[in-house]
């Protein structure tokens, strides 16, 4: 409950924030650089004197958007592959599961870094520096996180397709697509929602990690991870600079994970003793 409120507050802050806190994210004021929190700058300033609250609000929008979009990608891909693997009784099912296991044993972060390294220039040219990176990061993070969803969906399919009501639909001559869309998918929804929730947190961490390694959004786009990356060389003189974005990531991730856990308990009565 508390985590849901916290998360809503965080979302509200980054959505409405810019209309209330009308400070530019890129006003440079070197004289006022590296100041701690004050009235003029509630979260302090960075080395160039840019206002951290404004930058945090802006970055939060990107971080949360990346998290949500990447989750949608991974849930979509995962559901598709899991459903295909769950419905086919032959070689296709085995092949897809082998692929899932293969992806599960891929070293995610190195691959993520490599993909971004290889593709960023091309996409930058096509969609502009920010849009290109956004699309790339979302696709790559989502594309590397669909496996748990696929496994869940497949497992649900395997158990559900033998259930009486699906048998009944099959006996009545429902087409496979109809069986899936009308009868199986709605029942497989619960676990997928839980996995999706956790995926948002994982995607936020992944995006922040990339930015933190200096390989995410371009330097002038202040995502939470990027702010942390810039701040890490000034820990001794401006610790506030690192603490605010780090704290924001942590709060978002804890809140989302808690919600995922709560949903699991709510949807899976078996686990509650």
């Amino acid at each position: 409950m508390i985590s849901a409120v916290l998360l809503l507050l965080l979302i509200a802050a980054v959505v409405i924030g810019p209309f209330i806190w009308r400070v530019s994210i890129s006003d440079i004021d070197v004289v006022a650089g590296l100041q701690g929190p004050s009235l003029a700058h509630p979260f302090g300033t960075d080395d160039l004197g840019q206002d951290l609250l404004a930058r945090m609000i802006y970055g939060g929008r990107i971080s949360l958007a990346v998290g949500l979009a990447a989750m949608l990608v991974s849930v979509f891909v995962g559901t598709l592959i899991g459903a295909l693997a769950g419905m086919s009784r032959g070689a296709l099912g085995y092949a897809l599961m082998w692929l899932t296991d293969l992806f599960l044993s891929l070293p995610q972060l190195p691959l993520l870094l490599m993909l971004i390294y290889l593709f960023r220039d091309g996409l930058k040219a096509m969609f502009g520096p920010e849009g290109g990176i956004f699309i790339l990061i979302v696709l790559v993070i989502g594309g590397l996180r669909w496996m748990p969803v696929a496994r869940l969906v497949r497992a649900q399919f395997l158990s559900l397709r033998e259930k009486e009501f699906v048998e009944a639909a099959r006996a009545l001559g429902a087409s496979p697509v109809r069986q899936v869309v009308r009868h199986i998918l709605p029942n497989a929804l619960g676990p997928v929602i839980i996995a999706g929730t956790i995926d948002v947190a994982a995607a936020i961490i992944a995006e922040s990690t990339l930015s933190f390694l200096g390989l995410g959004f371009p330097p002038d786009t202040p995502t939470w991870g990027r702010i942390l990356y810039d701040a890490k060389d000034f820990l001794d003189i401006g610790p506030h600079w690192a603490l605010f974005p780090g704290g924001a990531i942590f709060i978002a991730v804890v809140a989302i994970n808690f919600i995922g856990d709560g949903l699991r308990d709510a949807l899976d009565a078996r686990k509650v003793i």
Partner: peptide, 12 residues
Amino acid sequence: IGFSLPTFFTGI
């Protein structure tokens, strides 16, 4: 809390 804290933040 431990697994919600990303390593880069704990490191810092």
